[in-house]
């Protein structure tokens, strides 16, 4: 009976996580932290929608949108870097990482401008519940962008030395996954805090 079976098609590679299990556990914890923060924001807003809407309107949505574009683009560049490493072109991938770092730096610059404007307008953690959330959420995310940049920098140093290749993807995939997480949470943060009323 067995012999009569037709030969099986060549097996596809079994499903695997891109990156180390440890970084994924860490990412899950981060997602949980941001998730709790978002939900807390949403329910705090439900108690006082008018106040939230009024102060939300005063935010700089242009800056928020440009920052979203920058993070998405950085993420895309990181994807290209990973693909380049997979094709055995680690050094080529390093250039994509530099581009990603450039976008991230742009994000940081715009964010600092936003904070400067907010502080000069007298906005602080204690000025209102909305501003508490606005500053806390964006600053918590801001710290993650900075950490993400350190990680991308480390990937860049390694990629430049040609360290990554089809048989050594663990490091670059782990770092990339972390960066995408930073992007992912911003994709919710931006509409939630800046736009949806």
């Amino acid at each position: 009976m067995r012999a009569a079976c037709p030969p099986l098609p060549a097996p596809r590679t079994p499903p695997t996580l891109a990156g180390d299990l440890a970084i994924w556990i860490f990412i899950l914890a981060e997602l949980l932290a941001f998730g709790v923060f978002f939900i807390a924001y949403a329910f705090a807003r439900a108690n006082n929608p008018e106040l939230f809407a009024a102060e939300q309107l005063a935010l700089n949505r242009d800056a928020g949108a440009i920052n979203t574009l920058l993070l998405l683009t950085a993420s895309y560049f990181v994807v290209r870097a990973v693909h380049a490493a997979e094709a055995g072109q680690s050094r080529h991938g390093a250039r994509w990482l530099v581009a990603a770092l450039g976008c991230a730096a742009g994000f940081v610059a715009i964010k600092i401008g936003e904070y400067a404007a907010a502080f000069s307008a007298g906005i602080s953690l204690s000025s209102s519940t909305f501003h508490m959330f606005y500053l806390s959420l964006t600053f918590f995310h801001f710290m993650h962008v900075l950490l993400g940049m350190v990680i991308l920098g480390a990937l860049w140093l390694n990629a430049r030395r040609g360290l990554y290749g089809p048989h050594n993807m663990n490091g670059i995939e782990s770092g990339a996954a972390y960066w995408h997480m930073v992007d992912l949470v911003w994709l919710i943060l931006f509409p939630l805090v800046y736009v949806i009323r």
């Binding site: 949980l32 709790v36 807390a40 705090a44 953690l125 508490m132 806390s136």
Partner: peptide
Amino acid sequence: TPEYWQWWGSIFSALEPIPFFA
């Protein structure tokens, strides 16, 4: 202390079980 600590404290300490779970 300022009121925002009620948010910060609640959110982050609610996550303190995670390292222990790990």
